[in-house]
């Protein structure tokens, strides 16, 4: 009975974090982009700096008509938005905020996270195909091409962190962390950041959704709440990837204050990476499709392999 109560409490906490953190990231993105681009954006809703604009957007999305195109494959079209959301919810559950502060402690939680993240992007593919729209199909194809190429460096650098820690569990990796990792795993962390941004199809890697040429690609035909679910999945993806990088490279809850405040460190570290991902969007123009593939295969994969070699040498030398 006690176990059951614990499971329920942990699940409710994960759900609450899942409902709050992506919205926070969304609001931060509005404000940060507004300031970086020297424009105000919506300032009226709610009073102080338009903090309630996101709520107003949500209400607007909920009121819109839910349209399914005549030429669409209706069942797949309806299921597609749910896949991404559910996948990131399951991914968030295994991210540790403290030695005992997590949704679930799975022995292979790193592999779990990567596998589930891959499933989430299948939703975008399904959306692109089932819309019965040429723009959407093009977007879906670009998504698939991008996914196949950026999944590889992402998994390689995650393997590097796992080898360095000697564990596949995120809690185990955070326990094995020490400050040397900041230098030792630096190339891997940079590759992770770039590959994660590409995996989330955020600018400058947003060729699949490029709104000015593909009209949002796979999401062209979506309206109302289903479109909002895709947006929410993108923000949830930022949350998951930022906290994953914080757990892998910055040692999750490690910090100077007593251990009971570990979750605060984790929030700060994850928040910094989320901010950087937003910053990247403002700083770089969109890459063309062939440049995008070039970055993955000629830039990220060799660096990731080099990082794997460095990690392997380090592990062998230090374990003597």
């Amino acid at each position: 009975m006690n176990d059951f109560v614990e499971i329920v409490i942990r699940s409710v906490c994960v759900l609450a974090a899942f409902l709050v953190l992506p919205l926070l990231v969304g609001q931060t993105e509005h404000k940060v982009m507004g300031h970086m681009q020297g424009r105000l954006g919506p300032m009226e809703a709610g009073g102080f700096h338009g903090w309630a604009q996101l709520i107003a957007d949500g209400v607007k999305f909920a009121q819109k008509e839910d349209i399914v195109p005549l030429a669409a494959d209706k069942r797949v079209f309806r299921i597609a938005p749910a896949l991404g959301i559910v996948a990131y919810l399951l991914a968030l559950a295994v991210i540790p905020f403290g030695p005992h502060f997590y949704g679930a402690n799975v022995p292979g939680s790193l592999v779990w996270l990567l596998a589930i993240g891959g499933i989430g992007t299948l939703g975008t593919l399904m959306a692109g195909w089932s819309s019965g729209n040429k723009y959407s199909l093009l977007g879906g194809m670009r998504t698939a091409a991008q996914l196949v190429s950026y999944e590889l460096p992402l998994i390689l650098v995650c393997a590097s962190f796992a080898i360095a820690a000697g564990s596949l569990s995120l809690v185990g990796i955070a326990h094995a962390w020490n400050p040397w990792w900041l230098i030792w795993q630096l190339p891997g962390a940079l590759v992770f950041l770039v590959a994660a941004t590409a995996e989330l199809q955020r600018p400058p890697f947003d060729m699949p959704v490029a709104d000015s040429e593909l009209v949002m690609g796979p999401f062209t035909e979506y309206t109302g709440l289903r479109f909002a679910l895709f947006l929410l999945a993108e923000y949830a993806g930022i949350v998951v990837m930022s906290f994953l990088l914080a757990a892998l490279w910055l040692g999750a809850w490690a910090g100077p204050l007593p251990d009971s405040l570990g979750w605060l460190w984790m929030l700060i570290k994850g928040g910094i990476f989320a901010f950087v991902i937003i910053w990247i969007r403002v700083a770089w123009p969109r890459l063309r499709e062939d440049q995008l593939q070039r970055v993955a295969w000629l830039g990220l994969v060799p660096i990731a392999l080099l990082q794997l070699a460095i990690t392997a040498v380090g592990v062998v030398v230090t374990s003597r």
Partner: peptide
Amino acid sequence: VGAIVVLVL
């Protein structure tokens, strides 16, 4: 699921 079916699609 994450790689081969994506390639098939």
